[in-house]
Nucleic acid binder design. Structure first.
Lengths: 363, 363
DNA sequence: TTGAAAGCGATACCAC
DNA sequence: GTGGTATCGCTTTCAA
C-alpha cells in the first residue's frame, strides 16, 4: 500500500485563497512586502490544511553551501579518530547541503591547539568544531570568530559563558561519580583511593575530579581520596607518579584514571605486582586496554563515545546554520560503562572497522 | 567563507562526453537501452569527476510515498512509549519521503499480538515494524507478509532465520552477563542468586537467561543459580514467586530481574525486610524505580534504550525501502548500565519530557 | 502589494 | 540507442 494522501503544498494554499504562490511564500516566511491581512489569511489556511514544506524542494532551491572546520588534536588517536569519523558520518548523511569539511590537526591538547585554531580562523568558515582546552585562553578567540560570523561548536569539553552555539561532551562529573561508585562497590573496608587527571585547566578534567570526590564523600565515606595527580597526558610523568604513589604503605586500594593516559599507570602497577589487586577504573577504550579488562585486571572503563560526540556536534551545528540560527542545547552524553561482560560490544570497533559498526556499537 | 566548489552533476558528465543527460542517467543507474560502451564511458567519467547525486533533487523528483505500520503493545508503557517516540522521531527527520505511520496497539506480548499483526497485514503496508514474541508463531506470518512485498523490521527482539529485513534490539545475552558481573562485584562469598524472567518463548528473554548463567559460571563460580522463574509479565505471579523464593533459608543473596516487571518482586522484598540487603539488578527504567536506585536499594538497572531502538528500526527500514533494498544489519545495542550516580542523566526523561531530551540522554 | 515565470538537479517520457 | 524536455515543490526575480 503506497501512501495515498497527497501532501499539501504552497500551490494548494494559493489555490484555496485565490492568491499566487509568491504571496504564499512571502506570507509563510514573514518576508516583507505582504499585506498584513493576506499574511494572516495565508498563515491560517496553511495551519488549517496542515501544510508541511517539502524539504527536498526547499533544499534543492536554496542550494546551500557550507564550509566547516574541525580543529582537533592528533593525540590521543583512539579518542579523536572516532570523533572525526563521527563528524564525517554526520557530513555524509547531511542531505540538501553541499558541505565541505576541513580538518585542522595539532599534536596534542595544550601543545599547538591555539595555533591551529588561529590557522583555521584565517579562512572564514561558516562553522567551526573544536575542543576548548584552557577556557580562559579560548574565550577571546571564540568571541573574535563569532563576531566574524562563524558559528562555533565545542566538542569533548565545554566552554560555558562564551559565544559558542552549542557543545557536546560526555558528562564529566557523572563520569567521575560513576567511577567512585564502581570502586565503592568492590572496596568495602576503610582504604585510600587515588585519581590521575590530565590538565586541571581543562574544564572537563576538573569536573571529573569534582564528581569523583563528591560521590566518594556521599556514598563511600570509608574511602579517603588522596590529592589529585596531574599528569598532563605525559606518559613519563604519569608513570613516575604512579610508582611513587604505590610505594606508600599501605598503598591505595583503588585508582581512577580520568584521562586516556592510563597505560603508564597500569604498567607501573604491573611492575609493582599490584595489577589485579588494586581496583582500577579507567577512561576510554583502546587496544591495549582490552586484555586487561578481559582478565579482570581493570574493573571497568568509562567510554566517552567519541564517535557519537562528533556526530552530534556536526548535526547540531548544521541545525544551527541551516535551520534555527539560535543556540543549540548543551549535550552531555551518558558515558558507557564497559565491563568485562559487555566489552565485546565495544572492542570490535577498535582498529579495522566499518563506520556502521562503530556507530551501532557506540549508540 | 561559503564553500566555493560547485559539485558535479549529470549535466557536467553529459557535457564532458557530448551525450545527453538522459543517457547519463540511464548509464549511471544501469537502466536498459544504453550501449554497453557508452555506459562504461559514462560510469568512468562519473567516477573521474567524483559525481555525487544531489539527494534533494533526487528525492524531489522521485517523490516517494511510503506507508509503514508499527505493531506494538501498550504494556509495558515505559518501554514501548519511548520506543514509539523513537519511531516518530525517525519519521520526523526523514527527508525526501512522504511517510505515513500507522500504529497498531494490543494489550501485551502474548495477549493479542498475533491478532494485531494480522489486522495490520490486511492493509498492505510498504513496511512493518513489530516485536516478534514467540518466533515459531511469527515465522509463517512474516513469510506471508514478505511475499506480499512488505518489508518487515523486528524491534525489541529478533526473529532470526525469518524473512525480516533487519532487527534492532538491546543485546540480550550481554545484558544478562552484565547483570551477573555486577552481582559478582558485590557478592564475594558463596551464595545463591535467582533470575526472574518474562516469557521463555521470547528469544530475547531466553538470551538474557543464557548470558546470565554463562557469565556466572565463568566469573563467579561461588554463586549458584537457582532455576529461572517465569512470571509472564504478570505482577501477581511475580509477587507470589518472589515471596516463596525469599522464604528459603538461606535466601538468595542476589536477584536479576530480566523483564520490566520488577516492582512486584521489589515489593515482596520490601515486605520481607530484605530490600537493600539482597543485591538486585533490574531491567529498564521507570518512575517507581528511581527512588530505589537513588537510595541504593537497587544496585543497578539495565536500560534497553527503547527510544534509540525505535529510531534505528525505522531509520534502517527506510534505508531498505528507499535505498538499498537488501537486508539491513542486525543491530544489538549495548544496554546502558544505570547506577545511582548516573541516574540523573536518564531519570529526567521519564514523564513530561521533550523528545530532544530523551534522545540526547539515551544516546 | 501582488502575480507570473524562471530555475535548482535528477528522472522519465516521447520522439527520432 | 539516444536526445530533448516536462516535471517534482519551492524560492526569487521581474513586471505590473
Amino acid at each position: 500500500m503506497t501512501n495515498p494522501e497527497r501532501p499539501v503544498g504552497v500551490k494548494d494554499i494559493a489555490n484555496a485563497l485565490k492568491v499566487s504562490i509568491g504571496t504564499v511564500d512571502r506570507a509563510l516566511h514573514n518576508r516583507p512586502g505582504v499585506n498584513e491581512k493576506t499574511k494572516a489569511l495565508v498563515q491560517k489556511k496553511a495551519k488549517e490544511l496542515g501544510y508541511q514544506p517539502n524539504l527536498a524542494a526547499q533544499a534543492l532551491k536554496l542550494n546551500r553551501r557550507l564550509a566547516v572546520a574541525a580543529v582537533l588534536p592528533k593525540h590521543i588517536a583512539h579518542f579523536f579518530d572516532p570523533l572525526r569519523d563521527g563528524i564525517r558520518a554526520a557530513a555524509a548523511s547531511a542531505v540538501g547541503v553541499n558541505l565541505t569539511l576541513e580538518f585542522f590537526e595539532y599534536p596534542r591538547l595544550g601543545g599547538g591547539d591555539i595555533e591551529a585554531f588561529q590557522r583555521a580562523m584565517q579562512k572564514q568558515f561558516d562553522g567551526m568544531i573544536f575542543l576548548p582546552g584552557d577556557v580562559r585562553k579560548y574565550d577571546p578567540l571564540i568571541r573574535k570568530v563569532a563576531e566574524n560570523g562563524t558559528a562555533v561548536m565545542c566538542v569533548g569539553s565545554d566552554a560555558p559563558g562564551t559565544d559558542r552555539v552549542g557543545a557536546v561532551s560526555a558528562h564529566a562529573s557523572v563520569s567521575g561519580a560513576v567511577a567512585a561508585e564502581l570502586l565503592s562497590h568492590t572496596l568495602t573496608s576503610k582504604a585510600e583511593v587515588a585519581i590521575f587527571s590530565g590538565e586541571l585547566s581543562t574544564l572537563d578534567h576538573v569536573e571529573k575530579l569534582r564528581g569523583f570526590a563528591a560521590a566518594l564523600a556521599v556514598i563511600a565515606p570509608h574511602l579517603t581520596l588522596l590529592p589529585a595527580l596531574e599528569s598532563h597526558d605525559r606518559p613519563r610523568e604519569a608513570y613516575g607518579q604512579a610508582i611513587e604513589l604505590m610505594q606508600r604503605k599501605p598503598h591505595p586500594a583503588g585508582i581512577y584514571i580520568s584521562t586516556a593516559n592510563s597505560m603508564p599507570v597500569l604498567q607501573a602497577l604491573e611492575e609493582l605486582g599490584l595489577l589485579g589487586k588494586v581496583k582500577v577504573v579507567t577512561t576510554d577504550l583502546f587496544r591495549e586496554l582490552v586484555p586487561l579488562i578481559e582478565t579482570g585486571k581493570v574493573l571497568a572503563t568509562l567510554h566517552q563515545r567519541p564517535f557519537t560526540q562528533g556526530k552530534l556536534a556536526l548535526e547540531n551545528l548544521l541545525i544551527y546554520l541551516l535551520r534555527d540560527r539560535r543556540p543549540q542545547p548543551v549535550v552531555q552524553l551518558a558515558p558507557h560503562v564497559i565491563f568485562r561482560m559487555n566489552l565485546a560490544l565495544f572492542a570490535n570497533q577498535i582498529g579495522s572497522r566499518t563506520d556502521e559498526e562503530v556507530e551501532f556499537a557506540e549508540r
